[in-house]
Every structure is written in C-alpha cells, then in structure tokens.
Design a protein around this nucleic acid. Structure first.
Lengths: 228, 228
DNA sequence: ACGATGCTTCGGTTAGGATCGAAGTATGAA
DNA sequence: TTCATACTTCGATCCTAACCGAAGCATCGT
C-alpha cells in the first residue's frame, strides 16, 4: 500500500501553476529575486513568498541573502535535470500550453537548460559532434574521444580540466522541444560559456531563450554542420 | 512568463496521495483492476474511478477491458522510467515516508521496477556484471561486451534476439533505495523473467517486492558475486 | 430472465490551500 | 533619524477538488 518514497509531496510542489512557472523560470540558471519570481509566477509577492518557502522546505530551491534582496536558485543541478526530464515527458504527451506564446519559436531554436544549450541548436551541436567522431554515443551514455578532445581544445575547451571535476563530463539531456538528446554535463556548460564569452550569443533578461548574433550564428553553424 | 510545456498538469496528477499510491502500485508492472487500485490508493472504488479517469486523460495510464474487469497499466515504459526517476529524487532528498512499513526491508532487498529487478540485488547484479567485464559502463551508458554476450547465453539469455527489438538493450536506472544504478532495458527484463521462470524467485501478490527461494538465492548470489 | 459483480456517474459535503490586503520586519539610502 | 525598498507573516476569503453515499450501466453466471 504505502511503499517507497513519497512522490506525492514532490508532485504537489510542482503541481501548482504558480510554483511550476517559478521553477521553469529558474531553469534559466540565473539567480532571481522573490519579486522577479512573483512576476514569473503571475502572483503577488506575498503569495510568491509562501510558495518560495514551500519550495525551499522541499529542498528544491536554495536562497542566498544579499542586502535586502534574496536570490533564489535551484538547489543543485539534479533538480534542473529532474525538471527537464518532466518537461520532456510533458511535451511528448501533449501537455503543451494552450496558447503558444510569441517567444515559443525563439525558445525552440535555442534556450538555456539549467546551464547548457538546448533547443534546435543544442541538438544540432550534439549531432554534429557525434557525426564527426568527437563524441562517442554508447547506448545512453556519451564520451569524448581522443580526437574530440584535441578538437575541443582548438575551440578553447580544456577537457582534461573539466574531467577533474566531480560532475560528469558528458550527459545526454532529453530536449522537450526536439524530443531528442542534447549535450549536458560540464562539457555542455563549458561550450555554452564559450559561446557567450566569444559574443556569439547572449542570454535574454526575461526568458530562457538564447539569442545569437548574425556573426555568431554563422560561426556556430559552420562549426557544427548538419551531416545531412 | 509562460514558457515551455505545462509541468504543472503532470505535477498535479502525481501530487495527490491516492494517485501517487496508485502509480506506485502500478510500478510493479502488473496490470491491476480498478478495485485493486482503489485498495492501493486507500480510497473507495468511486473515488479511485475518478482518479483513474484523470490519470488516463493525462496519458499516464492505459486501460484494457476484459470482461467486466478493467485492467490498468502504465501507458508505456517511459512512464515507469519517469516515475522511478522521481522516486530516486524524492528518496535522495529525504522525502521518505513517515512510517517505514514492515515490508520496507524486503523492498530494499529486491523489488520490481516496472519490469526489471531493483533493490540491493538489482544493484549487486549490475555491479557484478560490470566487474567481470560482461557489461561495459561508458559514462552514463551501458553496453554488453562480446564475452558478456556468450556468458549470458549460458544463463539462457539470447542477446541478439533482444537487440532486434526497438527498446534499448541496456539502460541504467537509478535505484531509489540504494541510490546507485541497476540494470533496466530489455536485458534487465529478460534477466528477471529468467529468474522467475527458473523458480529462483517469485513476485508477491500485493507488493512490489520479489521473494527469492533459499535455493534460488544461493544460485543468484553464486552467479553474481560481489567483487569485494 | 435474474441476481451478482465490477465499475462509472451524479449530488452534496467538506477541507485544504491558493490568494490577496494589511500589517510587520529587515536592510539600505538620504 | 527618517523614508523607501524588499520581503515575510497574519488574517480572512474563496474556490477547487477530493471524498463518499446512492443510483445507474455493463457484463458474467446460472
């Protein structure tokens, strides 16, 4: 009858629309204040405050006080991974929004998934890396090949340094819009940072979408050609 | 503001205790009737009926009419995979039941995770297969080696036949009680079926736990020794 | 045809929780 | 010190949805 962990608690936390919107907003990876999250959730600050307290009690969020602001972030990347998996599941089952907003196309093209690149461009990047043999796809898992390591070095990614971190180097992450895998893990994070540092793309203030500059887009597409 | 798929709908479905218990019961992999699920959820049949209708509308369940019975199962193995991931997350965050029931130890030792073996024994089996080189662990992914293929053949598993199915041969599945990976995928399913067919173990009627016979346990432990 | 079983639908009750206005606390700026 | 901003807590309202009793279908056995 009552077996295993209590999934109802977590489900209930995600089940409220305001909280779901708050969590979705935090998937952008940026720390946001309570007021910003209230706007994201479509509720007043009082209401948002209680929601944030509940999410924090449920260990989904952590807060960092800074002056009179309180910045909230997802508790760790396992939460982000977890939420993205729900989104993938939801998208695959037709649990889509009634009204796809104007920002939808931009989101499908390129967006941030916790700390790495997702959307069409994210999928394209991983496909391209696999096609050229820089990354080996082994069942569910991914691994950088030797040739891939030197290739990434040319782009400006120090793979051995990334390996030393406790976090997995490569992980595949199911993309809710494309329904295919994109690259997560410390390498995925490093690649996105790389693009942002080079000025190829920038994060938008309000949304999770990533906007490429014309030149950046050209470079990106040249670097990661489609095999077909 | 409103970006991406609607995770709130799914969260709400899982968020009700009765529904969560129903889903947990169905993780056993067996098709269950509405009446049985009512008992699992701790509610009357009327209430369970409305819950089941909602879960079906949310594409989490499918029903199969058979005479005057209606058998419910999880919609497909992606639902099982998804739910197990929530359980893993919940277990890791201390969202455990207040009262660990008397069946808990049995569940931790060996239980069914949708269609394959989980718990201590499930983890032990995968560890042992990896340690002897029958399965290669490659980042997140798993793959059967050539020597593993012939070894499994001796046990009675036809790996090439399993490969022909669309379903992945090996997948790692995070175990909520052990917090480590066990073997899922068509191979995981085949191994469990194999043990059941041989009479080494049997599924229990009410619970997800798997009970080994004394002789079956001896055989299993001999076949999958711990490396330490 | 008849009753028994399995399940669903209807109606009405109840409880939990989401919500916001208003007041209270903390931090920073002037 | 005084005011403004950021956030939380309190109190009260309101609404959804979970729940069960009772009645209604559907299917099986005899």
């Amino acid at each position: 009858m009552k077996e295993g962990p209590d999934i109802a608690q977590i489900g209930a936390l995600i089940g409220d629309p305001a909280r779901a919107n708050i969590l979705t907003a935090l998937m952008g990876g940026k720390a946001l204040t309570a007021t910003e999250l209230a706007a994201a959730g479509g509720v007043t600050v009082q209401t948002a405050s209680t929601h944030l307290a509940k999410l924090e009690a449920g260990n989904l969020l952590v807060q960092r006080k800074q002056g009179r602001h309180r910045y909230f972030t997802l508790a760790d990347d396992s939460v982000g991974k977890f939420l993205e998996s729900i989104m993938g599941f939801a998208a695959g089952r037709g649990h889509l929004r009634h009204k796809p907003g104007p920002k939808e196309p931009a989101l499908r093209k390129a967006r941030i998934c916790y700390d790495h690149l997702a959307g069409d461009y994210g999928v394209r990047m991983l496909d391209s890396l696999i096609a050229r043999g820089a990354i080996d796809a082994f069942g569910d898992g991914l691994a950088v090949t030797e040739s891939g390591e030197s290739e990434l070095k040319r782009i400006g990614i120090d793979v051995p340094a990334l390996k030393s971190s406790r976090r997995p180097l490569c992980r595949s992450c199911l993309d809710w819009s494309e329904r295919r895998a994109h690259l997560a893990g410390s390498l995925g994070k490093a690649l996105l940072s790389n693009f942002l540092d080079k000025g190829w793309a920038r994060r938008t203030a309000q949304s999770r979408s990533v906007v490429f500059s014309p030149e950046g887009e050209r470079q990106f597409l040249a670097l990661f050609p489609t095999s077909r």
